[in-house]
Nucleic acid binder design. Structure first.
Lengths: 192, 192
DNA sequence: GGGGTCTAGTTACATTGCAACTAGTTTCTT
DNA sequence: AAGAAACTAGTTGCAATGTAACTAGACCCC
C-alpha cells in the first residue's frame, strides 16, 4: 500500500521536517513561504483530508494536543521516520523524471485549427500580454527580501524555473504571432 | 449548470467536429492523431464516462446505432450546436489565459534544500539526460510525414510548444548544474 | 492451437475538487 | 461603541477524476 504522491502530501511532509505542527499552522506556513504558488491547496478541505490520510499511512503521527485557552484544541503532528524516507523518495522521483501532466494549453493548441487564423492570433496576443505580467510578478519575487536580507537563491529555485519556462513560452508565442501576421503560418479553419 | 472544462472533454468535442463517431472510434482517433500526447486518456473508463456526461449535458447527442455483424453495436455521437459553441469558448479561455496547474517539478524544487547539494545535482543531472531524449523525440515528431507529405505546421503547434518549453527547462537545469559544480549555488541541507 | 492484439466495453474503489456551512475571536473603521 | 472584515479552525457533502482489474468475442500470425 504505497501512498500516492502529490504536491500537497510532499509539502506537508516537507514542512514537518521543520518541526511538529498543527494543521492550521501548516496551512499558514504554506502561505507564508509562498508554497501556495507551487502546491495546490485551494480549500482547507484538501489539507485536512490529506493529513488524516498521511496519519493512517503512518507517515505522520499525532502528538500532544496543545491547549491554548483562547483557541480550540490543536493536534500537533510529527513526521515519522517512514515519512521522512518517503519524502526523500518522492523528491528523487520528482526531480529526476520529467512527466507529462497534460496542461491545457498544449491541448488547446492542438485544436487551434478549428478557429480562423485571425482569431487564433488575437487570442494568443491576449495570452502574451498576461504572460508579460506574470513574468514581471515572478521577477519581483526573485528580488524579494526578508528582514532586509535578500532571500537566498536556493530558496527561489522554483521561481527561477517558472520564469525560465514562462519566458520560453512568451518567445514561442511571439514567433507564432509573427508568422501569423506575415502569413507564413496559416490554415483554413474547420474540421481537421 | 456549466460543464467543467477538461482536456478530454475538449478533445471529444474537437474530434466530433470532424463528423459523427462512436466511442471506440474517438479513442482510436485520439491515438492516431497523437492527441494522447496532450490529452489525458489513460483508461478508456474516463472516455466512456465523459461521453455519457457530455450527452447528459446535451453537448453531444447519440444518433443511429451502427450495426456491423462482426462488431458489437456502436452508438454514433454527434456534436450539437451548443457543443460546438462550448468548444469555441473553451478554446478561447484556454488560449488566452495562462493558468497555474501545479506541476510537480516546481513543487519538488521548492523542497530541494532538504537534500545535500551534491544529491540534488545528481538527480537534476538525470533529469537533464531524460529531457535530452524527450526533446529528440519531439523533434522527430516535428519532421513526421503522412503519405510522404510533411505534416503541415499548424497541426504541429502543440509539439513545437512542448519543444520550446523542454529546451528552456534543459537550459535552466544546465545553469543550475553549472552553479552547483562551481559552488556558486549551495546550501546546508536540512529543515528550512 | 497458443499468444498476442484489437474491439468494446463494465465495475468498483480511491482520491481530488469545489462549494457551502459553522462559530468563536480579533482588529479595523467610522 | 457598533458593525464590518479578517483570522482561527474546522466539518459536511457531492461531483468528478484516476486507477485497477475484469469480461469477452474476433482476428492474426506462427
Amino acid at each position: 500500500m504505497t501512498f500516492r504522491r502529490s504536491t500537497l502530501a510532499l509539502a506537508i511532509l516537507g514542512l514537518l521536517e521543520n518541526g511538529p505542527l498543527h494543521p492550521y499552522g501548516i496551512q499558514r506556513l504554506i502561505k507564508q513561504w509562498g508554497k501556495d504558488q507551487v502546491v495546490n491547496v485551494g480549500q482547507r478541505t484538501s489539507l485536512y483530508r490529506m493529513i488524516v490520510r498521511l496519519e493512517e499511512a503512518e507517515l505522520i503521527t499525532a502528538g500532544a494536543t496543545e491547549q491554548d485557552e483562547r483557541y480550540p484544541e490543536r493536534t500537533v503532528y510529527h513526521l515519522t521516520d517512514e515519512g521522512r524516507e518517503v519524502c526523500r523518495e518522492w523528491l528523487a522521483e520528482i526531480l529526476t523524471t520529467p512527466r507529462n501532466e497534460f496542461p491545457e494549453f498544449p491541448a488547446g493548441l492542438s485544436f487551434v485549427m478549428l478557429l480562423p487564423p485571425e482569431t487564433a492570433g488575437e487570442l494568443l496576443g491576449q495570452r502574451r500580454e498576461r504572460l508579460t505580467k506574470r513574468i514581471a510578478e515572478l521577477q519581483l519575487e526573485l528580488r524579494s527580501e526578508v528582514d532586509g536580507q535578500p532571500v537566498p537563491r536556493f530558496a527561489l529555485l522554483e521561481t527561477e524555473y517558472q520564469v525560465a519556462v514562462a519566458v520560453a513560452e512568451a518567445k514561442w508565442i511571439d514567433s507564432v504571432l509573427h508568422d501569423l501576421r506575415t502569413g507564413t503560418l496559416t490554415w483554413t479553419p474547420g474540421p481537421v
